[in-house]
Design a protein around this nucleic acid. Structure first.
Lengths: 239, 239
DNA sequence: GGGACGCTTCGGCAGTCGCCGAAGCCTTGT
DNA sequence: ACAAGGCTTCGGCGACTGCCGAAGCGTCCC
């Protein structure tokens, strides 16, 4: 092993990177990008490894502060420790070649289409829907990309009118572009992206399909998104 | 090897992360964060490995699109491929524990102090100086942190008056906070940070100490920075 | 043209790490 | 109290990767 004896001073990049350098751990992290907490066994099955193997990987990720764990009864739930971790993983994913295999079964293909259409990405919306919302907000002057991404004054009042609480200023950027690996185009992330997505769930505009990352737009949601952003009926009713 | 047979679809996180998961390769990347091009042998000596070893690592990094290479005569120069790569490395570094060993020799300690005071970080300014400039710009209303980092209108005219060309809108954010691992506080990065730093070199406000990342403020620079940002004489003459 | 220098290729060695299954612990539910 | 299920610990195996030195190729400079 070479990364145990760092030859130069400075931050220990390698120790963090090594956590993500394994296919199994990476697949855990990608799964956890949905922002929810998974149990150890769920992740093990998802990645196709034995429970014992998953345990060891999870320990490493938790010790490395990439994941946070929470124990409930006989379950061990883990989730990404931090929005910063989610951002790091997104950046890494955007840089990586997408080596998606063509879906094998019909149901897999349906799942894949649903995912591509609308899904959560950590704590905000991605997929065709996420990109469409971002584009529409830009067209209407709610977002400004002129010098980096920015929420305009109009954007703030628009959100307030919808009932979305714009979070107070924190370390976390209010708006941030997140590069999607199916769309290859940026969509709205950051504190505002998360607030908007959370509100959409709370207000019943969208709901999860089963327990996956995929979401579907309710009829309520179709009304609001068409009214407020002019999203096409065609896009909204697709699934 | 486990990352060669990905069990799940999606971007191949692990293949990118693996490139940074080795201590030697990570040290290359950290060195290259100074934004300059290094030769293979320089990097080998820097990391304390044989030239043959460095060659192999560099090949891997270039093939993985993290580095760009340029051959000149018998030299092979490499640099970070992209500002996005620099950003990725910074993010990773900010997440990693800083395991700096206490400097052993007196000259090493001097070097370290100079580095901590003022240095380049990829293509912008970091260290005490970089943070001080960022703070001063914020105090004077040239930067706004209210909802993520933003360059204000005043900021734009201030830059123009100084002769700094504000780059046109591109994919790269104009302003971006970069978290410094000595200061642990954000300083100005992004296209504007790069332009400001470049101008400071061109106009002779700062110059490199030897061929390191450390910079020193010239008397010219002391005037300008004191006039324009009210930086203290004490800070500016320190080295 | 010859020597110095920078880079590359090629074995070969050693250390690490990921994987599994078996056995054991703890919580939950009957 | 017992069974079931989730999680953990512990060897042990196999594979990969990083490291080096020697030898070779190309470029530069005398």
């Amino acid at each position: 092993m070479t990364s145990r004896r760092p030859r130069t001073k400075g931050p220990d990049l390698a120790s963090v990177a090594r956590l993500l350098a394994d296919g199994t751990r990476a697949s855990f992290c990608l799964a956890l990008l949905d922002g929810r907490a998974w149990t150890a066994t769920e992740l093990a099955r998802h990645a196709g490894v034995a429970a014992s193997t998953a345990t060891e990987h999870l320990h490493a990720l938790v010790r490395g502060n990439l994941l946070a764990e929470e124990r409930q009864g006989r379950h061990r739930y883990v989730r990404l420790a931090d929005p910063a971790v989610a951002e790091l993983i997104e950046n890494l994913a955007a840089m990586a070649p997408d080596q998606a295999a063509p879906p094998r079964s019909l149901s897999a293909s349906g799942r894949r289409r649903a995912l591509a259409h609308a899904r959560t990405c950590y704590d905000h919306l991605a997929g065709t829907l996420g990109v469409a919302i971002t584009d529409a907000m830009t067209e209407r002057g709610l977002l400004d990309w002129e010098h980096g991404l920015r929420l305009t004054g109009d954007g703030r009042t628009w959100l307030a009118k919808l009932g979305v609480t714009v979070p107070a200023a924190t370390r976390r950027p209010a708006v941030r572009p997140c590069l999607d690996w199916t769309e290859r185009r940026p969509h709205l992330a950051g504190a505002v992206g998360a607030a908007l997505c959370g509100h959409a769930f709370d207000a019943g505009w969208i709901s999860r399909i089963g327990s996956t990352r995929a979401v579907t737009v309710t009829s309520e949601g179709r009304h609001v998104l068409c009214d407020q952003l002019g999203l096409s009926e065609e896009l909204l009713s697709r699934r």
